[in-house]
Amino acid sequence: RWLAGFEMRRRARGIDIRVEETLSLTFEAPAGPFTLTAKADRIELSSTGAAVLDFKTGQIPSAKQLKTGFSPQLTLTGAILAEAGSKTSGPVEPEELTYVRVVGRKVPGEAKTMAEGAEAAHLSEAALAGLKARVARFDSERTPYLSWVAPQFMGNFGGNYDHLARVWEWHVVGGEEGET
């Protein structure tokens, strides 16, 4: 019932709904063209812009994670829409970034809008600028690839490549190889 009500409210606005549409944007970087792709759970096109929705069954990222770039899915999808648009729409301003949590329990779901209007457009633009800066930085041979950049978001098991970086060996033992 919650989801049916959510749908009725959203569709009453006279929107064109796109589900699991793949978007892409290619930009120039120091080592050559870089292509960013996103598969949006849902895009709602209106006469004034686009809403980007991501459906979750687990926890919704915090506003701080979204704004600091640790959860860039919505913002980068918004940036692709603003710069390149979709295959059929052309560029369109992101006007809403929303997570929809559907769980079907005591609280069956919730829609949490993280940004609207100018803030949605600004966060999307900032996310793209941040990505371009990181791509440029990592295109340099002098930039190291760190295994634990943000350990607070890694969970209990660490990264997929910790064994290659010998993270646990250095983390537990410390110091340099052969040092006691």
Rank of each mutant, 00 (worst) to 15 (best):
F138S: 02
L123D: 06
R137G: 00
K112M: 12
E96M: 14
V135H: 10
P144I: 07
T143C: 11
A111C: 10
L131Q: 02
E93C: 04
G117I: 12
S124H: 02
E110R: 12
E141T: 15
V102P: 10
T143A: 14
E125T: 14
A136W: 15
L97W: 01
D139R: 11
A127G: 03
A136E: 14
S147L: 11
V107E: 13
T98H: 00
K132G: 00
R137M: 08
S140M: 13
H122E: 04
L128N: 03
A111K: 03
L97M: 04
R101G: 01
P91A: 00
R142S: 06
A126T: 13
E141N: 11
A136H: 15
T113L: 03
R137T: 11
E96H: 06
F138H: 14
K132Y: 03
R101C: 08
E141P: 15
A127D: 08
A121N: 15
E96K: 11
V92R: 05
R134V: 11
K106P: 09
P144R: 08
E93P: 05
G104H: 07
F138Q: 06
P108F: 04
D139V: 14
V107C: 03
L146M: 14
E96F: 12
A118F: 08
S124E: 01
P108I: 02
L146N: 10
R142A: 07
P91K: 01
P91H: 01
V103Y: 08
E95S: 04
T113D: 02
V103G: 05
A120W: 07
R101M: 09
G109M: 05
Y99M: 05
S140Q: 14
R142F: 14
L131R: 07
G104T: 04
L131C: 00
V100R: 08
L128T: 05
P91V: 09
M114K: 04
S147Q: 10
E141Y: 14
A126R: 13
A129F: 07
L131H: 06
G109Q: 13
G104L: 06
V100F: 05
A115P: 08
L128C: 00
P108E: 04
A129D: 09
P91R: 02
L128F: 03
G104M: 09
E95P: 04
T143L: 10
A133V: 06
T113H: 01
A133R: 06
A121D: 13
